[in-house]
Amino acid sequence: MLKILKYSFYDLMRSRWSYVYFAFYLLLGVVLLFLNNDLSKAVITLMNVIIVLVPLIGTIFGVMYYYNSKEFTELLLAQPLKRPSIFLGQYLGVALSLSMSLILGLGIPFVFYGLFKSGAIWDFSLLLITGVFLTLIFTALAFNIALSNENKIKGFGYAILLWLLLAIIYDGVFLMTLILFEDYPLDKLSLVGTMLNPIDLSRTLILLKLDISALLGYTGAVFKQFFGTNFGLIVSFSVLVVWVMLPVWRIVFKSKKKDF
């Protein structure tokens, strides 16, 4: 698996898209910091970018890589290699190269700006960790979609749909549900609702840092325990790990069954 990972990673590191992605983040970081000169504001803007764009890029890139390297995958399949290691290797190659672009692209301008001397370093690290988690999750979901759909167009369609669903539509439905059932105790429902969507989960994780003052304004005891203590942080991270494991497990499962 490590060999496949190595080659996929090298392959992607040379791909134009990795540079585009890297350049995009670099530009974003530079614009936010040096034109704006306000670290706290930059972190907030970055959060919006990360929870929306990282999943989108992760899914699209994952699906694209899978379809583009289909023949190469077949070549690998004929080699004495285990199937899960081929797909996990490719998956990790994509996810890691995307994560690298993210970390370096955003990290470099921030380091130059004097991140290590500022108090925002924890907020920023949390942003990057969340970004990496989202990349891992959405690339894995993308591989799942691609493994289940031979048709490229269909695969892309589902990938975009998945992103739309989790990034926007889910929250709309979530909001309507909360408003419709406002007469009932909702704090458990709203927390569960958050856990079921990795984008919401990551957002909550960042909220814990950026908007804790507002979150503590709400009365519910479950909320209070969740946001007021480290409990929320631990639970969120554990669920994120589960969110990575589930699609990865399905990649392994699916890859063992699939015909090429």
């Binding site: 959060m47 919006n48 929870i51 929306v52 990034a167 926007i168 539509i169 929250d171 709309g172 979530f174 909001l175 909360l178 408003i179 406002e182 909702l186 704090d187 429902l189 709203s190 927390l191 609702g193 958050t194 919401d200 957002r203 909550t204 960042i206 909220l207 950026l210 908007d211 507002a214 979150l215 304004g217 709400y218 009365t219 519910g220 909320f223």
Partner: peptide, 11 residues
């Protein structure tokens, strides 16, 4: 008040 959990969502 529970909708606070959707703060900063794209929607």
């Amino acid at each position: 008040p529970e909708t606070i959990i959707l703060l900063r969502s794209l929607f």
